[in-house]
Computed example of a mutant assay.
Amino acid sequence: MVRIIEVGGLSYRYNEDQPWVLRDLSFSVNKGEWLAIIGHNGSGKSTLAKCLNGLILPQKGTVHIGGFDTKNEKTIWDVRRMVGMVFQNPDNQFVGATVRDDVAFGMENNGIPREEMIRRLPEALRFVKMEQFAGSEPHRLSGGQKQRVAIAGIIALQPLIVILDEATSMLDPEGRRDMIRTMRYLNRERRLTVLSITHDLSEAVYADRMIVMNQGEIVREGTPRDIFQSPEFLEKIGLDLPFAVKLGHVLYEKGVPLTDAALSQEELVNELWTLRSNM
């Protein structure tokens, strides 16, 4: 496995007279992995996201992206070209008058040749099923459509890493499912490294691995199935368990012989159907 992100002893605070927002964080991410970083509001997740793309620099410790140290002024733009960010509110990312202009702006800003921009732009919009909205004003789109445009802008830049910073929190259930499907495809088919920073555990279940943060520290690390074996701990630090996980634990306690902890509604339905078929 090739490590694409390495964080060692990372600590950060916004003012010297305030507590540390991040405290001695150390972890790594493999190329092509989907890592979910979860925690309640105020646990330090968004500050960590800014450290990972060089918007803020470690006050203690190091952050290496693709082998580059974010503290190195000579290579910081190499780091930022490797990392694409999709934020909670896509309106804050739009700068173009039309969807086409907005996707093109990021490429132009990164110095991509015009011929290459012309090739990439329709491909990126087609990938997120937004080609018919190329001439539309971004602010007139629905929440789910806006996020797809934001993703198109990232796809066009072809980064190695995409960070979703609470990117699904303002979407309705269908928009959330659509975005997760898109990111799962990018992760699996294009081997894009995905970091999902969220307090929504129903989104985190699709990750390969999870890190749980609380008060600026990493308090748990493992696969989603491992993490959800301790539902009481997650609830204790203010995280709301996915419905399927809650129901699965209740059914197990009531004597239903479930063979494994279902993480999604689809998994739970399939397991119950299999159980019924074998009765």
Rank of each mutant, 00 (worst) to 15 (best):
L57P: 00
E232A: 15
G153F: 13
I4P: 14
V250C: 10
I5M: 12
L268R: 00
A204H: 09
Y14V: 03
D91M: 14
Q132E: 06
L263Q: 00
R191L: 15
L164N: 08
V95K: 02
Y12G: 08
H139K: 10
I211V: 11
L141S: 03
K246L: 14
G66N: 15
G61P: 11
S202H: 02
E189R: 04
I112N: 13
D17E: 12
L48I: 00
N72H: 10
G8V: 09
E131Q: 09
Q215P: 00
F233C: 02
T47Q: 14
G248D: 15
V219A: 10
G248M: 05
I155H: 03
P173N: 09
A152P: 09
E235R: 05
H64A: 10
G67D: 04
N92C: 05
K74L: 14
V205C: 02
E232P: 00
D172Q: 02
E253M: 15
G39Q: 03
G42N: 09
N89P: 08
D24K: 06
L241K: 13
R188K: 06
V21I: 02
R184A: 11
A97R: 14
Y12H: 08
N110F: 06
K60C: 07
S43L: 00
E131H: 11
K71F: 07
S142T: 11
N30Y: 09
N15F: 10
D101A: 06
A262I: 02
M279Q: 08
M82I: 07
G32S: 14
C51R: 01
T62C: 04
R225M: 01
P122K: 05
G143V: 05
I37D: 12
S142H: 11
G106N: 05
M279A: 05
F228M: 11
G66M: 02
P173Q: 06
F243E: 12
Q93P: 14
V99T: 15
P173R: 10
E108K: 08
R176L: 01
T259W: 01
H40K: 10
T259G: 07
E203G: 04
T259R: 12
D24Y: 06
M1S: 14
A150R: 15
R80E: 15
T198E: 06
A207P: 02
G106H: 10
Y252W: 10
L171H: 10
R191K: 15
E6I: 13
I154D: 13
E108D: 07
Q145M: 14
V128L: 12
A134T: 09
D91A: 13
A97H: 15
G8W: 01
D69S: 05
M210G: 13
V83W: 04
E189Y: 07
T223S: 05
L25P: 13
P58T: 00
Q88N: 14
I155N: 12
G216F: 15
P159R: 07
S264A: 07
D226W: 04
D178W: 11
F233H: 11
V149M: 09
Y252M: 05
L48H: 10
G96P: 02
I37R: 04
W273H: 13
L268A: 00
L272C: 01
L192A: 05
E203P: 06
L234M: 07
R225N: 00
Q145I: 01
V29T: 08
S277G: 13
V2Y: 08
